[in-house]
Write a protein that binds this DNA or RNA. Structure first.
Length: 280
DNA sequence: CAGTGGCCCTGAGCGC
DNA sequence: TGCGCTCAGGGCCACT
Protein backbone atom coordinates (compact mmCIF):
# COMPACT_ATOMS: atom_id res chain seq x y z
CA UNK A 1 0.00 0.00 0.00
CA UNK A 2 2.09 2.80 1.24
CA UNK A 3 4.55 4.77 -0.81
CA UNK A 4 6.25 7.89 0.47
CA UNK A 5 3.11 10.08 0.47
CA UNK A 6 1.09 7.60 2.50
CA UNK A 7 3.91 7.20 4.99
CA UNK A 8 4.32 10.97 5.27
CA UNK A 9 0.56 11.53 5.65
CA UNK A 10 0.53 8.87 8.33
CA UNK A 11 3.43 10.55 10.12
CA UNK A 12 1.75 13.94 10.03
CA UNK A 13 -1.50 12.49 11.32
CA UNK A 14 -0.09 11.34 14.65
CA UNK A 15 3.36 12.87 15.23
CA UNK A 16 2.03 15.87 17.18
CA UNK A 17 -0.31 13.79 19.29
CA UNK A 18 2.24 11.18 20.30
CA UNK A 19 5.09 13.59 21.00
CA UNK A 20 6.01 13.34 24.66
CA UNK A 21 3.80 10.33 25.34
CA UNK A 22 5.06 7.86 27.93
CA UNK A 23 5.25 4.23 26.83
CA UNK A 24 3.44 1.82 29.10
CA UNK A 25 3.94 -1.37 27.12
CA UNK A 26 4.64 -2.80 23.70
CA UNK A 27 2.46 -5.69 22.61
CA UNK A 28 3.39 -7.69 19.52
CA UNK A 29 1.18 -10.02 17.48
CA UNK A 30 2.23 -12.40 14.74
CA UNK A 31 5.80 -12.12 13.44
CA UNK A 32 6.47 -9.36 10.95
CA UNK A 33 9.36 -9.21 8.47
CA UNK A 34 12.01 -9.09 11.18
CA UNK A 35 12.03 -9.69 14.92
CA UNK A 36 11.91 -6.65 17.18
CA UNK A 37 15.50 -7.18 18.29
CA UNK A 38 14.95 -6.06 21.88
CA UNK A 39 13.02 -6.92 25.00
CA UNK A 40 9.65 -5.15 24.67
CA UNK A 41 9.46 -4.75 28.41
CA UNK A 42 12.58 -2.64 28.29
CA UNK A 43 10.70 0.11 26.47
CA UNK A 44 8.28 0.77 29.30
CA UNK A 45 8.68 4.22 30.78
CA UNK A 46 10.38 5.74 27.74
CA UNK A 47 9.10 8.96 26.18
CA UNK A 48 8.27 9.25 22.47
CA UNK A 49 10.15 11.96 20.60
CA UNK A 50 9.54 13.63 17.23
CA UNK A 51 8.49 11.04 14.65
CA UNK A 52 10.66 11.20 11.55
CA UNK A 53 10.37 9.71 8.09
CA UNK A 54 13.22 8.36 5.97
CA UNK A 55 12.07 7.01 2.61
CA UNK A 56 9.13 4.78 3.44
CA UNK A 57 10.32 4.15 6.98
CA UNK A 58 9.15 5.91 10.12
CA UNK A 59 11.43 6.41 13.09
CA UNK A 60 10.01 6.82 16.58
CA UNK A 61 12.78 8.00 18.85
CA UNK A 62 12.46 6.95 22.48
CA UNK A 63 14.10 8.62 25.45
CA UNK A 64 14.48 7.74 29.07
CA UNK A 65 13.92 10.39 31.71
CA UNK A 66 16.92 10.95 33.96
CA UNK A 67 17.51 13.42 36.77
CA UNK A 68 19.32 15.80 34.46
CA UNK A 69 16.92 15.52 31.53
CA UNK A 70 16.34 12.82 28.95
CA UNK A 71 18.71 10.23 27.61
CA UNK A 72 18.18 8.61 24.17
CA UNK A 73 16.97 5.04 24.56
CA UNK A 74 16.95 3.98 20.93
CA UNK A 75 13.78 3.94 18.92
CA UNK A 76 11.43 1.97 16.74
CA UNK A 77 11.88 1.78 12.99
CA UNK A 78 8.54 1.03 11.37
CA UNK A 79 7.79 0.01 7.79
CA UNK A 80 4.25 -0.48 6.50
CA UNK A 81 5.15 -2.99 3.78
CA UNK A 82 2.40 -3.52 1.22
CA UNK A 83 -0.64 -3.60 3.43
CA UNK A 84 0.26 -1.89 6.70
CA UNK A 85 -1.34 1.10 8.32
CA UNK A 86 -0.97 2.83 11.66
CA UNK A 87 -3.72 4.16 13.86
CA UNK A 88 -3.33 6.24 16.99
CA UNK A 89 -6.32 6.57 19.20
CA UNK A 90 -7.23 6.82 22.84
CA UNK A 91 -10.14 4.44 22.50
CA UNK A 92 -8.87 0.94 23.17
CA UNK A 93 -10.45 -1.11 20.38
CA UNK A 94 -10.32 -4.90 20.55
CA UNK A 95 -7.17 -6.37 19.01
CA UNK A 96 -7.96 -7.82 15.58
CA UNK A 97 -6.26 -10.74 13.84
CA UNK A 98 -4.18 -8.36 11.69
CA UNK A 99 -3.11 -6.07 14.51
CA UNK A 100 0.53 -6.94 15.08
CA UNK A 101 1.81 -4.10 17.24
CA UNK A 102 0.31 -1.99 19.97
CA UNK A 103 2.54 0.70 21.43
CA UNK A 104 0.51 1.52 24.49
CA UNK A 105 1.15 5.01 25.86
CA UNK A 106 -0.48 7.39 28.31
CA UNK A 107 -1.83 9.36 25.32
CA UNK A 108 -3.26 6.47 23.35
CA UNK A 109 -2.35 3.33 21.48
CA UNK A 110 -0.27 3.34 18.29
CA UNK A 111 -1.44 0.26 16.42
CA UNK A 112 0.05 -1.37 13.34
CA UNK A 113 -2.48 -3.30 11.29
CA UNK A 114 -0.90 -5.32 8.48
CA UNK A 115 -2.72 -8.30 6.91
CA UNK A 116 0.17 -9.39 4.69
CA UNK A 117 2.84 -8.83 7.32
CA UNK A 118 5.47 -7.50 4.91
CA UNK A 119 5.81 -4.62 7.33
CA UNK A 120 8.29 -4.33 10.17
CA UNK A 121 8.81 -2.95 13.64
CA UNK A 122 12.44 -3.04 14.68
CA UNK A 123 14.15 -1.61 17.71
CA UNK A 124 17.47 0.09 17.08
CA UNK A 125 19.84 2.01 19.34
CA UNK A 126 19.73 4.96 16.92
CA UNK A 127 19.06 5.81 13.29
CA UNK A 128 22.73 5.46 12.40
CA UNK A 129 23.48 2.27 14.27
CA UNK A 130 22.24 -1.27 14.54
CA UNK A 131 19.38 -2.57 12.46
CA UNK A 132 18.14 0.90 11.45
CA UNK A 133 21.50 1.78 9.94
CA UNK A 134 21.57 -1.53 8.09
CA UNK A 135 18.09 -1.10 6.65
CA UNK A 136 18.56 2.54 5.67
CA UNK A 137 22.06 2.08 4.25
CA UNK A 138 21.00 1.44 0.68
CA UNK A 139 18.46 4.24 0.44
CA UNK A 140 18.89 7.07 -2.04
CA UNK A 141 18.30 10.74 -1.38
CA UNK A 142 15.03 12.26 -0.21
CA UNK A 143 13.02 13.65 -3.15
CA UNK A 144 12.37 16.93 -1.35
CA UNK A 145 16.06 17.47 -0.68
CA UNK A 146 16.66 20.72 -2.60
CA UNK A 147 20.28 19.84 -3.23
CA UNK A 148 19.28 16.80 -5.28
CA UNK A 149 19.29 17.58 -9.02
CA UNK A 150 18.58 15.94 -12.33
CA UNK A 151 22.33 15.87 -12.83
CA UNK A 152 22.57 13.50 -9.87
CA UNK A 153 20.13 11.10 -11.51
CA UNK A 154 21.94 11.46 -14.80
CA UNK A 155 25.30 10.63 -13.20
CA UNK A 156 24.02 7.76 -11.06
CA UNK A 157 22.21 6.11 -13.94
CA UNK A 158 24.99 6.42 -16.49
CA UNK A 159 25.57 3.07 -18.14
CA UNK A 160 22.57 1.40 -16.57
CA UNK A 161 20.73 -0.70 -19.09
CA UNK A 162 17.71 -1.68 -16.99
CA UNK A 163 14.43 0.08 -17.74
CA UNK A 164 14.00 3.43 -16.06
CA UNK A 165 10.78 2.52 -14.27
CA UNK A 166 12.11 -0.34 -12.12
CA UNK A 167 15.34 1.61 -11.63
CA UNK A 168 13.42 4.62 -10.33
CA UNK A 169 11.40 2.34 -8.07
CA UNK A 170 14.51 0.70 -6.67
CA UNK A 171 15.08 3.94 -4.78
CA UNK A 172 18.84 3.76 -4.60
CA UNK A 173 19.18 7.25 -6.08
CA UNK A 174 15.96 8.93 -5.02
CA UNK A 175 13.52 7.29 -2.60
CA UNK A 176 9.77 7.39 -2.36
CA UNK A 177 8.35 6.54 -5.77
CA UNK A 178 6.70 3.14 -5.56
CA UNK A 179 4.61 1.56 -8.27
CA UNK A 180 1.83 4.14 -8.45
CA UNK A 181 3.95 7.26 -8.28
CA UNK A 182 6.72 5.92 -10.53
CA UNK A 183 4.09 5.33 -13.23
CA UNK A 184 2.55 8.74 -12.66
CA UNK A 185 5.87 10.60 -12.62
CA UNK A 186 7.04 8.95 -15.84
CA UNK A 187 3.76 9.91 -17.48
CA UNK A 188 4.07 13.49 -16.29
CA UNK A 189 7.65 13.66 -17.59
CA UNK A 190 6.66 12.12 -20.95
CA UNK A 191 9.18 9.29 -20.62
CA UNK A 192 8.60 5.74 -21.84
CA UNK A 193 9.01 3.45 -18.79
CA UNK A 194 10.84 0.87 -20.94
CA UNK A 195 13.68 3.24 -21.81
CA UNK A 196 17.03 2.14 -20.33
CA UNK A 197 17.78 4.42 -17.38
CA UNK A 198 21.22 5.20 -18.72
CA UNK A 199 19.77 6.55 -21.95
CA UNK A 200 17.91 9.44 -20.34
CA UNK A 201 19.35 12.78 -21.37
CA UNK A 202 20.25 15.31 -18.73
CA UNK A 203 17.17 17.50 -19.48
CA UNK A 204 14.91 14.48 -19.23
CA UNK A 205 16.44 13.62 -15.84
CA UNK A 206 15.61 17.17 -14.75
CA UNK A 207 12.05 16.74 -15.95
CA UNK A 208 11.70 13.35 -14.30
CA UNK A 209 12.91 14.62 -10.94
CA UNK A 210 10.53 17.59 -11.22
CA UNK A 211 7.71 15.16 -11.98
CA UNK A 212 8.58 12.87 -9.06
CA UNK A 213 8.52 15.86 -6.74
CA UNK A 214 5.27 17.24 -8.15
CA UNK A 215 3.47 13.90 -7.98
CA UNK A 216 4.63 13.11 -4.45
CA UNK A 217 3.87 16.63 -3.21
CA UNK A 218 0.39 16.53 -4.68
CA UNK A 219 -0.30 13.11 -3.20
CA UNK A 220 0.74 14.28 0.27
CA UNK A 221 -1.54 17.32 -0.12
CA UNK A 222 -4.61 15.21 -0.81
CA UNK A 223 -3.85 12.61 1.84
CA UNK A 224 -2.25 9.86 -0.23
CA UNK A 225 -3.84 7.14 -2.35
CA UNK A 226 -6.48 4.82 -0.93
CA UNK A 227 -6.61 2.05 -3.53
CA UNK A 228 -8.03 -0.50 -1.14
CA UNK A 229 -7.79 0.53 2.41
CA UNK A 230 -5.18 3.19 3.10
CA UNK A 231 -6.10 5.36 6.06
CA UNK A 232 -3.98 7.74 8.07
CA UNK A 233 -3.63 7.40 11.84
CA UNK A 234 -6.93 9.29 12.27
CA UNK A 235 -8.67 6.76 10.03
CA UNK A 236 -9.10 9.25 7.17
CA UNK A 237 -8.63 7.98 3.57
CA UNK A 238 -6.62 9.74 0.85
CA UNK A 239 -7.91 10.97 -2.50
CA UNK A 240 -4.98 10.79 -4.92
CA UNK A 241 -6.33 7.63 -6.56
CA UNK A 242 -9.08 9.82 -8.02
CA UNK A 243 -6.57 11.76 -10.06
CA UNK A 244 -4.16 9.13 -11.36
CA UNK A 245 -3.39 9.67 -15.04
CA UNK A 246 -2.30 6.15 -15.88
CA UNK A 247 -2.06 3.90 -12.80
CA UNK A 248 -4.89 1.38 -12.73
CA UNK A 249 -6.38 2.74 -15.96
CA UNK A 250 -5.54 -0.03 -18.44
CA UNK A 251 -7.64 0.31 -21.58
CA UNK A 252 -9.13 3.64 -20.56
CA UNK A 253 -8.39 6.71 -22.67
CA UNK A 254 -5.27 8.71 -21.88
CA UNK A 255 -6.41 11.94 -20.26
CA UNK A 256 -4.17 13.90 -22.61
CA UNK A 257 -4.35 12.23 -26.04
CA UNK A 258 -7.21 9.75 -25.72
CA UNK A 259 -5.30 6.66 -26.79
CA UNK A 260 -5.80 3.64 -24.51
CA UNK A 261 -3.56 3.36 -21.48
CA UNK A 262 -1.39 0.27 -21.74
CA UNK A 263 -0.36 -2.17 -19.02
CA UNK A 264 2.87 -4.14 -19.18
CA UNK A 265 4.85 -6.04 -16.55
CA UNK A 266 8.33 -4.90 -15.53
CA UNK A 267 10.25 -6.66 -12.76
CA UNK A 268 7.05 -8.47 -11.74
CA UNK A 269 5.15 -5.23 -11.23
CA UNK A 270 2.46 -3.72 -13.42
CA UNK A 271 3.46 -0.62 -15.34
CA UNK A 272 0.79 1.66 -16.78
CA UNK A 273 1.69 4.15 -19.48
CA UNK A 274 0.56 5.98 -22.61
CA UNK A 275 2.55 4.81 -25.61
CA UNK A 276 1.80 8.08 -27.41
CA UNK A 277 2.55 10.64 -24.71
CA UNK A 278 5.55 8.81 -23.26
CA UNK A 279 8.43 8.75 -25.70
CA UNK A 280 11.58 6.73 -26.13
C1' DC B 1 28.52 -5.87 -10.34
C1' DA B 2 24.16 -5.08 -12.75
C1' DG B 3 20.05 -7.33 -13.63
C1' DT B 4 16.44 -10.77 -12.90
C1' DG B 5 13.32 -13.49 -10.44
C1' DG B 6 11.76 -15.83 -6.10
C1' DC B 7 9.77 -15.13 -2.03
C1' DC B 8 7.69 -13.44 2.40
C1' DC B 9 1.85 -13.43 3.49
C1' DT B 10 -3.17 -12.67 3.19
C1' DG B 11 -7.32 -11.09 0.92
C1' DA B 12 -10.11 -9.49 -2.96
C1' DG B 13 -11.99 -10.17 -7.31
C1' DC B 14 -13.10 -12.80 -11.21
C1' DG B 15 -14.29 -16.72 -14.34
C1' DC B 16 -16.28 -21.08 -14.28
C1' DT C 1 -21.93 -20.67 -3.23
C1' DG C 2 -17.55 -22.52 -3.87
C1' DC C 3 -13.10 -23.35 -6.05
C1' DG C 4 -8.95 -22.07 -8.15
C1' DC C 5 -6.48 -18.68 -10.29
C1' DT C 6 -4.36 -13.96 -10.59
C1' DC C 7 -3.13 -9.85 -8.67
C1' DA C 8 -1.96 -6.28 -5.04
C1' DG C 9 0.82 0.01 -2.79
C1' DG C 10 7.58 -3.31 -0.91
C1' DG C 11 12.00 -4.84 -0.66
C1' DC C 12 15.50 -8.41 0.70
C1' DC C 13 18.26 -11.93 -1.10
C1' DA C 14 20.17 -15.61 -4.05
C1' DC C 15 21.51 -16.52 -8.38
C1' DT C 16 23.39 -15.69 -13.17
Amino acid sequence: MPELPEVEVTRQSFADRILGARVAALRLGKPLRWPLGADPAGLAGTLVGAVQRRGKYLWLPLARQERAGTEPAGGLLIHLGMSGSLSFSSASAAVGVHDHMDLITDRGVLRLTDPRRFGAVVWSPSLDAGMAARLLAGLGREPFDDTLTGADLHAAWRGRRAAVKPVLMAGDVVVGAGNIYACEALFMAGIDPRLPAGRLSRPRCDRLLDAVRAVLRRAVEVGGSSLRDFKDAHGDPGAFQLETRVYGREGQPCRVCGSPVRRIVQAQRSTFFCAVCQKR
